[in-house]
C-alpha cells in the first residue's frame, strides 16, 4: 500500500496519543493508495487489546463504501512489541480484503508501520502475508 507522509503521521500521532493503550482506526483508499485516515475508539482502552467501537465501525464502513473509496486497511498500535501480528490479531482477523496495518511504538523514537494480509482460517504458517508499505 502507498501512504503519504502526512497520513502516516496521523496514524503515528494517534498511536502516541493513546499510549500506553492501543489505538485503532481505518484507512480508506483507492487503488491501493491511502486517501484518508479515520481514528476510531478502542472500547477496550488497554495496552493489550483493541476492539473498535462497533457503531463507529458500522457507520464508517458504510460511509467509506458509499463514498466510492475502498476500506484499504484496519490499523492498530503495538505499544510494547514489534509491528507484527500477534496470535490474537490473527485469530480475530475476520476481514480478508483490507490490510491490517500495525504501528509499533516499541522504540518510541522510531515508530514502525507495517501491513499484512491476515487469513485466520488458513493453515498455520500461511495466515500472515506482509504487504510492503510505501510512504511517499
Amino acid at each position: 500500500m502507498k501512504i503519504s507522509p502526512r497520513l502516516a503521521e496521523i496514524v503515528i500521532a494517534h498511536a502516541r496519543k493513546e499510549f500506553p493503550n492501543e489505538c485503532c482506526g481505518l484507512i480508506a483508499g483507492r487503488g491501493g493508495v491511502a486517501t484518508r485516515v479515520v481514528p476510531t475508539t478502542n472500547t477496550e482502552g488497554t495496552p493489550f487489546m483493541y476492539v473498535m467501537d462497533p457503531r463507529e465501525q458500522a457507520d464508517l464502513m458504510e460511509e467509506i463504501e458509499d463514498s466510492g473509496d475502498d476500506l484499504l486497511a484496519i490499523y492498530h498500535s503495538h505499544t510494547r512489541s514489534a509491528a507484527y501480528p500477534s496470535t490474537t490479531d490473527v485469530d480475530l482477523a475476520f476481514f480478508a480484503a483490507p490490510l491490517y496495518v500495525i504501528v509499533s511504538l516499541q522504540d518510541e523514537n522510531k515508530p514502525v508501520i507495517r501491513a499484512f494480509h491476515l487469513e485466520r482460517s488458513a493453515a498455520e504458517g500461511e495466515q500472515i502475508t506482509e504487504e510492503p508499505v510505501e510512504i511517499i
Partner: peptide
C-alpha cells in the same frame, strides 16, 4: 446487521 468485530491485541 451482522458485524464481525475489528479487534486484536499484542
Amino acid at each position: 446487521l451482522i458485524l464481525p468485530a475489528m479487534a486484536g491485541g499484542q
